[in-house]
Every structure is written in C-alpha cells, then in structure tokens.
Design a protein around this nucleic acid. Sequence first.
DNA 1: AAAAGCCCCTGGACGC
DNA 2: TGCGTCCAGGGGCTTT
Length: 295
Amino acid sequence: MPELPEVETVRCGLEPVLVGATLCDIEVRRPNLRFPFPKAFRAQLKGATVERLNRRAKYLVADLSNKKSLVMHLGMSGRFTIMVPNATKLKDTAQFVQDTGANPKHDHVVFHTSAGATVTYNDPRRFGFMILVDEHERETHKLFKNLGIEPLGNQLSADFLAARAHNKKTDLKAFLMDQRIVAGLGNIYVAEALHRAKLNPTRITSTLATKTGKPTKLSDRLVPAIRDVLQDAIAAGGSTLKDYRAADGALGYFQHQFRVYGREDEKCPRKTCDGRIKKIVQAGRSTFYCSRCQR
DNA sequence: AAAAGCCCCTGGACGC
DNA sequence: TGCGTCCAGGGGCTTT
C-alpha cells in the first residue's frame, strides 16, 4: 500500500495524538506480523513517552523517552486508526469503526495513551512490522544503513542521480524502485514520476549519465518529476486504493490525479500526446506508461 | 557485487 | 452461490 506520501500522511495524523503522549498500555494480539514482535515489546513500550514521530523512507520512527525507537512499517496493507476520548460514546464508536472499513479481526496492535486516545494498527496481509531499536542504532540498524536519500530532501539532484546511474545496466523502473538509491518511491510513484519526466521505464539507467558520470538532460528532468509527484500526493493526503486511509480515517485523493497508474488503454493525459497507456510487467510487477511520449 | 526470483499473507475481482 | 485463479501501495532473503 503505502509509499512515501501515504506514510507521511499517516505520520501527520498520528503526530498530534502520539507526540508528548505516554503509552500507558499496549495490546499485542498476536505473536508476529511479518516478523515476531521483539522480546518484551509490550514491557519496553509501557510507560514510555513518545518524544518525536519521524518518517524515514517508508518507515515511521517513534523516538521514546526510554532511549529506544519504535520502528514501524506498514507493508502493503497496514493502517492506523485513532480514537480520541470525545468519540468513545458507543454510537459514535460503532459509526467510526464502520466508516473505516477495517475488519477488526486484523487489529493486531492497540496503543493506549494516558490522554485516553487509542491508536490501532490493522494489517490484513501482515507484511508490516514493528521493531524496537536502541538510540544509537537509529541510523546504523540494518534496516536503515543501506537506505538511499530522501527524495524530498536537498540531496536529490541531477548530479546525484547521474552518479548513481553511471554504468548501471538495469532499467529505470528498477533504478527508482531500489530503496538503496532513492528511498520512498514504490510502484505507483515510480510510474507517475517517469511519466512526468517523459522517460520510458524500460530505458537503461546508465543513459541518465554521460560517460564520465555527469548528468544528462534526462536526469535534469527526473529530479523535479520525482519531487513534484510526491509533493502533489502529500498535498492530496496520499492515494486511496482498496483500503488505505489516513490515520484520522480520511481518504486520500491523489489516485484521481494518477496519470498512468492503473490506466491501461486510456489516452495519454499529456495534451500534446496522442498515445495510449500500456501495461507491462517488470520484475513481476505492473508498469504503466505511454510509449509515445515516454522515451 | 549486482540482479533476479521466491516468498510472506489476506481479500477482492473475475470467470465458469 | 460456490469454487478456482489472478492480482495487489513492500521488501527481506536466497540464489544466480
């Protein structure tokens, strides 16, 4: 499910409820998600105060007062819902639960804050996970140490892309999906960024750079395409496919702005292009693009 | 070292 | 209505 814009939307929703809150209890309703919960998971969280809630790539990182960080990944189907004290009247609660559309049998973790709020993690496919890392591991843990740059930070540049693309034989789809290069893009936003940049997802990555590893005009185009699509998606509250919701239960609306993703056989949305959107499979996953204007 | 497969898991859409 | 099949916002791990 969630790529960078969805995770950022969730982070923004959770932040006002969790930051500054003390976790007075945690229900862990099964032994594992994708990975087993860490030993003493509940005990380590209980009584801790959340000092910050950050996002790194597609991870949420809650820094705790006990010098640990709770690292959470939503996998494909993970979502959070918040209930605050004012909405706990039975009728409101029932309505709210119904509105979120989540099957309560997949409510795997419930955080209770001292302010009376409840934050529930629901994840039917259980590809998500939660782990605890020590303060000193916040950047060196194996999940983080190989992560690439944040695409919305100032490290993303044509020079950077060219340097990483130099001599690479993979295609652009794989290049942008590789979290070790740029972290946070996924299947949707790679497709959307490549359309905005007029670049074919099957293009060989090394063509983003000259023989000496300097940027070509192609990498110049790719940088704003990546930034813009992510910023636009965050502004729209992410994308809602199937069951994604922001933590406050709101739907994201960026899916209405998809230019190619899920639009097989539709006309290319670029006004000056009369191509149609194609669907191909790369590395076992669908790719949507216009073969006319994306070269 | 880089790249390609396999796999984890549930549920919704579709065809018969 | 009830199957069986395919597909889905990810990424760790194993194999080439």
